[in-house]
Nucleic acid binder design. Structure first.
Lengths: 283, 283
DNA sequence: ATTATAGATGATTTAAACTCATCTATAATC
DNA sequence: GATTATAGATGAGTTTAAATCATCTATAAT
């Protein structure tokens, strides 16, 4: 067809406003430019798009048809631009409640200090809403995840509140909180392996299960029990003196935190964020 | 958003072909130009649209979304351009069967000789198909039509085949074909007025009615009867010696041929055609 | 190894797009 | 009924944006 898109844009604006002047203002051009563009279109199509009376333009039949299509076409494109440009400006992290509340959100201040212009939104739990263009950070089995997607491998240990540990350990029946993952692909936490590493004789233990590590950790912080959980998740509490490992040997779990298709994340900001997160996790 | 439409066009073609080179060929540009355009887009959106491996590009998530929207958006616009540009290249006249067959089609050769590059299609009768962008030539009452839309005012006369006229006129019972218009807004043809103008004593007359002038005219040409009809429609036959007016006084009818909203016809070709038609009718 | 290919990059050239000055027609104001 | 103001038309001139060219890289195929 050989018509210029800019001419179409100019025409569309003129049609919408019913005025070259107003269209020019919208597009930050001179009315002359709009006039030239419309004439260019008209001559290429060899038909009039506007009826010109003095100080008044009015769409012709063909002009109406084209203006409508151009408006819809440009709108379609603008909406997509709007949508994806959000992904360019804002980071939307989707992860587990435990990782979000215990690691990500507390550390976010540091990220914001380094990159104050980048907005970060963390959504956690099951909420699928607005998954589009979000950056997923998942918890899974190391062997079922591509090596380049892994952010950190998880070691587990048993932790307890320092003030409560002596009492909890001296007790005949140890109470240890475990996590029973909702995800059936994840095997149960290797508490037996940890016990074998830390006790000669397997003590009498009462296990309590929750479906999120967060809950067991909070129980442990409150001194109600010990918790067998991720070193990554407990780290903020250990550093804050609220939890301490009770044994001397942590165990490797085969779990990891990872970002599926990590290399495919297309926004500069997402890449920046992943880089920052990885540094945070290995620290 | 401030992204260039040409960059979007380049990106859309690249996405569709999965290749900058192919996109460049489609748009008659160099692959470099496509590369520049895509980079320009990516930097403005601050995200990647393609994953680049060597000699292979692959859309990112955001790239897919944008490519889809851009394709649909541009297609919408191109379809409208295609549709209306047809109106710019081709003239589609819609008119009555009688006018088309007796006047327009016979004269079309002359138009084609003058403008060989312009295609003309004449559709007649009730067919509404493809009314869009067609140029209507209608038959109606002068007083209900805007003066500037009128192509020619109609005078009526009674005609007969020259060889048959003496016999038909000498007969006691004259047989005259009339038209009873399907359109209820049109009053009956003023045959009484014609009779008053051409006879002192009203003769004995048998009237035959058809809903199209064409039919009465053909009957008259075949010598079966006389016909009271439009001077415009009978002119080709009169000039060809197949019909002759039987009286000396034609009558004005209040009918006219007109083009509704004549001034609004937007294609250069339509205007050219209307000009030619008007010249034809007043000749 | 060698060649060929797709794309990236940066400098240069070209062409398209925008503006400016001028003009016309008309509506509003006095 | 002259005067002013306004929206758009027109054509020449200028500027900016876009395309190309030359060069380079990485890799797949021979």
């Amino acid at each position: 067809m050989q018509v210029s898109l800019q001419a179409l844009k100019a025409f569309e604006a003129a049609a919408r406003h019913g005025s070259f002047k107003a269209a020019a203002e919208e597009l930050s051009l001179s009315p002359t430019a709009i006039s030239h563009h419309v004439q260019n279109l008209e001559s290429r199509l060899s038909l009039s798009l506007f009826h010109r009376s003095v100080r008044k333009i009015q769409l012709t039949q063909a002009g109406k048809r084209l203006a409508d299509a151009a408006s819809r076409g440009f709108r379609t494109i603008e909406q997509a631009l709007e949508e994806i440009s959000l992904a360019g400006r804002k980071i939307q992290v989707a992860t587990t409640t435990s990782f979000a509340s215990l690691v990500l959100i507390p550390a976010l201040d540091d990220f914001q200090r380094q990159f104050p212009s980048i907005a970060v939104k963390v959504s956690s739990g099951e909420s699928i809403e607005n998954q589009l263009y979000s950056l997923p950070i998942r918890f899974g089995n190391t062997e079922s995840v591509a090596a380049e997607d892994i952010l950190c491998r998880e070691t587990f240990d048993v932790f307890g509140a320092p003030s409560a540990v002596p009492a909890l350990m001296s007790n005949n029946a140890l109470r240890i909180a475990l996590t029973r993952w909702k995800n059936p692909a994840l095997q149960a936490p290797p508490i037996d392996s940890w016990l074998a590493n830390n006790f000669n004789l397997k003590p009498d233990i009462e296990f309590i299960s929750h479906d999120q590590e967060l809950i067991g950790i909070q129980q442990a912080v409150m001194g109600k029990c010990l918790v067998f959980c991720s070193a990554t998740l407990s780290k903020p509490f250990v550093q804050g003196g609220l939890l301490t490992p009770v044994g001397s040997h942590s165990v490797d779990t085969g779990y990891c935190y990872y970002c599926p298709d990590k290399s495919h994340y297309d926004s500069n900001n997402n890449q920046l964020f992943l880089h920052w997160l990885q540094a945070l996790l290995v620290a």
